[in-house]
Design a protein around this nucleic acid. Structure first.
Length: 473
RNA sequence: CGGGGUAUAGCACAGUUGGCUAGUGCGCUCGGUUUGGGACCGAGAGGCCGCAGGUUCGAGUCCUGCUACCCCGACCA
């Protein structure tokens, strides 16, 4: 197994090393696309399972819409087409013949779905309409990196329609809260939440809400988004309903999504010099048992028998016994650490003689000896502690990396020397935002407060907005 | 789309001023010894030297043109 580049030496290379060495994904033969390997896909399946149940709990039904979208659908909404058309893959031929109308491979499904919404929604009784789909998306990005930005990626996109603005506001914020809770409880990711500036919002949206995590290199990463689409698409796609009084009304809509980028986010937030670290709840293997024995004689069977008994006692967790004879225990320790398995149990003749085993935590690298009989109660406790600790570590890091900024000089200095989130005033003008981005590469990640007294870090004018700036992925 | 780089075995690379049978390490297969923090010995398998032209008695090596990928920017989840 190859070595991992140090985070401090080259974070970007460290990231690529983790993806490869932890066997999350391979490059494919198609530019910008990746092959998600079993271990990486297992992480995605865990994300899917948990998030899907939370989505369903909000009374959202799963559906599936086509991959191909008539080009004219995208054309119907001006901002949307301007935002997405440049990065669309377009199908021009089918069955050996040129198509009468080009088909776009979905960069997102608003248009194809909302064309159908106009058929589905006729009465106020049809509202709210709340659907979700798990699908693949293609966006022809200039620059790609496994999980963080790929030409094709997997995601979940929720789409809802409501009677009025209040309904859409509530849904957009519900989805944001769902992501924030999911990130914290399941992925141990602390995220900032809030509204995006108009410059950063989704093409065609009234406003965009976002969850923002902080990578270990001090760069922000957008983990999930939720948009109030207003009546923009209702107008372009004629999504009308008759209200209680028989009057024709347009719907208010939302859309919200998270993608396989969450896996990249897990890597850049939790990973360390030894490799990946996975929070127990999302880890494909929560406990790995490494049996230690000499292959000849009875020792092997004795140790394996004990290991299997432990696995059986812990069967409500995802437990794996590494029974491979061709690798030494040391090799196995390293391999499972690289893959980020939260808890490792080592058991050999020395332990068995004392009816004990060794427990090794991935998050703290602590090793303790424990009676085998105690595992049944100790393991669940430890997994909870690891989950909690990883969140706390990430939160502490973010707090240390969040700086209150007064002057533009400080802004540039802190950004250069430290990175992280910069909390500062912003007048609300896109020109200042643009200048700051051009001069520092930092963008507004989310707006922190909208009704406060401060002044713009760039132009110095009085302002009511406090925002989080950061360089971002 | 700009800048930089690379293309030789599954992976990482070496291959000198053109030269005869293309190499090393890791990984893989087989046999044996091992196994408490990345084991060791021995024997093997595995190559359209990215593609297409050219120069030459002779090209992995020189020239031209393509193509692909990686890294750094701008654009974006």
């Amino acid at each position: 197994m190859s070595k991992i580049t140090s985070q401090s030496q080259d974070f970007s290379q460290w990231y690529l090393d983790i993806v490869k060495v932890a066997e999350l994904a391979d490059y494919s033969k198609v530019k910008g696309c990746m092959v998600i390997k079993p271990y990486g896909y297992a992480i995605w399946e865990n994300i899917q399972r948990e998030l899907d149940s939370r989505i369903k709990a909000a009374d959202v039904k799963n559906v599936y819409f086509p991959l191909l979208i008539p080009e004219s659908f995208l054309q119907r909404e001006k901002e949307h087409v301007e935002g997405f058309m440049p990065e669309c893959a377009v199908v021009t031929h089918g069955g050996g013949k040129k198509l009468t109308e080009n088909l776009v491979i979905r960069p997102t499904s608003e248009t194809i779905m909302y064309d159908t919404f106009s058929d589905w929604i006729k009465s106020y009784r049809d509202l709210p309409l709340k659907i979700n789909q798990w699908a693949n998306i293609v966006r022809w990005e200039m620059r790609t990196r496994p999980f963080l930005r790929t030409t094709e990626f997997l995601w979940q996109e929720g789409h809802t329609a409501h009677k009025d603005k209040a309904g859409a506001d509530e849904e957009a914020h519900r989805a944001l809260k769902m992501y924030e809770d999911f990130d914290r409880d399941f992925l141990a990711l602390p995220v900032l939440t809030g509204r995006k500036s108009d410059k950063e919002k989704f093409a065609g949206a009234l406003y965009t809400l976002s969850t923002e995590a902080l990578a270990k290199d001090g760069k922000a990463i957008q983990a999930g988004t939720s948009h109030n689409l207003g009546m923009t698409f209702a107008e372009s796609f004629n999504i009308n309903y008759q209200d209680e009084n028989g009057a024709l009304q347009k719907v208010w809509q939302t859309s919200w999504g998270v993608s396989t980028r969450l896996i990249g986010t897990l890597i850049v937030v939790h990973g360390d010099e030894k490799g990946l670290r996975l929070p127990p709840k999302v880890a494909p293997t929560q406990v790995v048992i490494v049996p230690i024995y000499k292959t000849d004689g009875e020792e092997r069977e004795t140790v394996l028998k004990a290991a299997r008994q432990i696995a059986s006692d812990l069967k409500r967790f995802r437990v794996l016994i590494d029974e491979r004879d061709t690798y030494t225990p040391g090799f196995k320790f390293t391999e499972w650490e690289v893959k980020g398995v939260p808890l490792r149990i080592e058991i050999g003749p020395r332990d068995l003689a004392k009816n004990s085993c060794i427990l090794a935590r991935r998050d703290t690298s602590e090793k303790t000896s424990l009676e085998i009989s105690e595992l049944f109660t100790a393991v669940p406790k430890l997994l909870d502690q690891i989950q909690e600790n990883m969140y706390e570590q990430a939160l502490k890091f973010r707090e240390e990396m969040t700086s209150e900024i007064g002057t533009y000089e400080d802004f540039k200095k802190i950004l250069e020397e430290k990175g992280g989130f910069l909390v500062t005033g912003w007048c609300g003008k896109e020109t200042c935002e643009q200048k700051i981005q051009e001069e520092t590469k930092a963008t507004i990640r989310v707006i922190k407060e909208e009704n406060t007294k401060c002044k713009c870090v760039y132009c110095g004018e009085k302002s009511s907005h406090k925002v989080y700036f950061a360089r971002a992925y």
